[in-house]
Design a protein around this nucleic acid. Structure first.
Lengths: 221, 221
DNA sequence: CAGGGTCGGAATGTATACAAACGCCGCCGG
DNA sequence: CCGGCGGCGTTTGTATACATTCCGACCCTG
């Protein structure tokens, strides 16, 4: 097994995102050690990692706290996400288009493509049978496209933005808007068909719709 | 003085960005300890931080290496940067516009605004007298606008993207394109005047021009 | 001589121990 | 009674020591 710090990062970030650790909560190293059953070094490394990602803030000798996350930043986040996913979709489609010319240099490419279409199918059935699974499938869908882009920079930026959006949704009711899997299907089709511009446009539109839905549910008050 | 890890992060990232540590170089903890005169714990924390930012990659028990950074990712990076800075400029201008209504709740706001205009002035004079200072002033200019946005999320994302762009420029010749400080002046004017949409549009155009310049210098071959 | 297996060194992962700084609580003086 | 201040406990920052894993060299065998 790899590094303890990685599992601590995952669990801590999960706890922050799902609201177990509320914004402003002070995270004491010793407590986290007891909670995760590890020493202080992995805990500190994990905290540094999350600090770099912006989930916690720390002041010297004053400890680390869960970052505060105002709804003002929602629109900013969606703006960044729009550009980010527009780009990942475009590059993913480009790579799918050129995959034959490079003679299957990346064997994982086909696998990811199949995973994408299978996720769309699963999404359609889950939509009416296991609604609670839809959110996870949605995340996987977008993450798969990011991985298809093949750019480590894009993937790492996407991870952070996606996690923060997740956080955003979890902070209020926890109910996410109705997912339009028909849009997902269209995006997946454009990506696998290797049409970069169509994929980018559809993805941009999809994120835009997502933001509109979010604002509709929150602005009215 | 705060944390040793922070200074190590800064110096290491600087070394990576300016080419002291070439991509693919293995970073041995003990060597870094001797180099910076600190123990392994701060070094490890710094490495974790840089890993989260995507400047190094690490495999368990295989050490950490400086990330490889293909020119393919340049266009992606600029696309993200465009959206990011478009957003920071818009929010910065919004905050400047509304700064009176909230009755100067943020005293640092005025200071940052003045710093912005002073940076523009310094840029104009530096352009013809100390050309080697221009790059640093450019970075400060964009960073100041990011801080003016007041969004920790945007600032943290901006830092990473900006450093990577810096890296990009440093990896080849080290000569950056001619900086158009007239564009900077226009942006600063729109921001301080509190015109969000104009600031956003100008910034987007500015980044776009930056990308065009980059591609012109690299695509031709 | 080639190939594979095994052993040793070196570097990472983890835990524990020590030092420095902050904040809180109680005390004292005005 | 209230505000400043100093001691003390808690927590973070740093260093050192131990355990685990990987990589490479060497040797043995076919």
């Amino acid at each position: 097994m790899g590094k303890l710090a990685d599992t601590v990062v995952t669990r801590l970030r999960g706890g922050i995102v799902d609201g177990t650790y509320a914004p402003g909560t002070r995270l004491v190293e010793a407590d986290l050690c007891r909670e995760f059953g590890v020493s202080r070094v992995p805990v500190r490394e994990a905290l540094r990692h999350l600090e770099a990602e912006g989930f916690v803030v720390s002041r010297p000798y004053a400890g680390v706290r869960v970052a505060r996350f105002g709804p003002d930043e929602a629109a900013d986040l969606f703006a960044v996400r729009r550009a980010l996913e527009e780009t990942t979709a475009r590059r993913a489609a480009t790579r799918m288009r050129d995959r034959t010319s490079v003679a299957g240099r990346d064997p994982g490419l086909e696998e990811l493509g199949e995973r994408l279409t299978s996720l769309v199918a699963m999404g359609h059935t889950a939509l009416r049978e296991w609604p609670e699974e839809v959110a996870a499938l949605n995340t996987s869908f977008h993450a798969t496209i990011a991985e298809l882009s093949g750019s480590t920079v894009l993937v790492s930026l996407f991870r952070q933005v996606a996690a923060k959006i997740e956080w955003l949704y979890a902070m209020d009711v926890g109910v996410r808007g109705p997912h339009s899997w028909s849009e997902h299907a269209a995006i997946a089709e454009a990506v696998t068909a290797g049409d970069p511009e169509r994929a980018a446009a559809l993805m941009a539109e999809h994120v835009e719709a997502s933001l509109t839905g979010y604002l509709l549910r929150h602005a009215p008050q």
